[in-house]
Amino acid sequence: MPPISSPGAEARFDATIAAEEKIEPRDWMPEKYRRNLVRQISQHAHSEVVGQLPEGNWITRAPTLRRKATLLAKVQDEAGHGLYLYSAAETLGVSREQMQDDLLSGRAKYASIFNYPSLTWADVGAIGWLVDGAAIVNQISLCRTSYGPYARALVRICKEESFHMRQGFEIMQTLCGGTSEQKAMAQDALDRWWWPTLMMFGPHDAESAHSQQSMQWKIKRQSNDELRQKFVDQSVAQAEHLGLVLPDSDLKWNAARDHYDFGAIDWDEFQRVLNGGGHCNRSRIKARRDADQDGEWVREAMLTYADKQRARAVEDAA
C-alpha cells in the first residue's frame, strides 16, 4: 500500500533528498519518482537474468575445470543479483510476476549488450573484463542512489561484480600470454565487445530521456557521459597491460581535459539493437519465454502440493 500523502509530505521528501538521506519504502514519494525507480530497477534485474545466457553458453565448453567452476559461480551470482533487484523493486508495490511479464512481452527493456552473441572462449573474458567492468563503474556510482533498498542491493552486487571483472581480465591475460592464435582470439573479442560496452552507459546526456529528472532525484548520481569517460580512461591502461589495441583510431590522451578523447559512437546501431534488431534479441527473449512456459507445470504443481499439505495439516489438527 502506498503511504498516504499528508500535508508537508512533498517538502519532507525534497528535504530527505537534499540531505543525502535515503527514501525508504514506507516514505511518501512522488508517483513519478516511484515509476522511474520501478523502470530502472526492474530493467537492471532483467539485465542480470538475461545476462546469464551469453556466458551460460560457454559453461559446458569451459576449457579447464577451474574455469568451469568460476564461470558457474559467476552465472549463479548474476541470477542472485536478479533476485536482490526484483526484491528491491517489489518494495515499490510491483510484483515480480508483473515485471517478468513485462520482460517476456517486450514492454520492459534489459541491457542491450546481451543481444550480441558470445562466439569464442575469449568472449567470456571480454564480457567479464568489459561488461562487468562497465557495470561496476555504473553501479558504484548508483550505490549512492536515493532509494534505500536499491542502494543496499547495489552494495552487495558491487562486491561480486569486481570479482567477476578480475576473473574476466585474468582470462584475457592468460590468452594474451599464450600463443598468437589465442591472442588473436582475445583481440577479436575486444574488437566486437568494445563499442557495445560504451553504449551500455546510454545516450549522450543531451539526448537522454530520463537522465535529468533522475539526477535531480538523485536516483542517478553521475551522467551517462561522465561514467562512460571514466570507463574509457580506466580501460586504456588495462588494454595496454594486455598488449591489446582498443578498436578506436580516434582514441588519444587530451592533456587539456585530463581525459582520453575517443571516437564517435554509432548511435544508429545502438537504436537498432535497443529496438529489437540485434543478433540475439529474439533468441534471448525466446529462451526466457521457453523457460517460463516449460516451467509452468512445475509452478502449478508446487501450488497444488502446498494446498494439499495445508489441507492435511488441518485434517490432522481436527
Binding site: 575445470l65 567452476a69 559461480a73 542472485g80 533476485l83 516449460d294 512445475v298 509452478r299
Partner: peptide
C-alpha cells in the same frame, strides 16, 4: 550446468548452478 538460465524460475537457476558447482568442485 546445462540448466543455467533455463530453469522454471530464478531460485531454481541458482540452485541448479549451485548443485552443478558442487559436483564440478568434487570432480576436481
Amino acid at each position: 550446468s546445462e540448466w543455467c538460465g533455463h530453469s522454471p524460475f530464478l531460485e531454481e537457476d541458482i540452485a541448479m548452478a549451485n548443485t552443478a558447482l558442487d559436483h564440478v568442485g568434487r570432480a576436481r
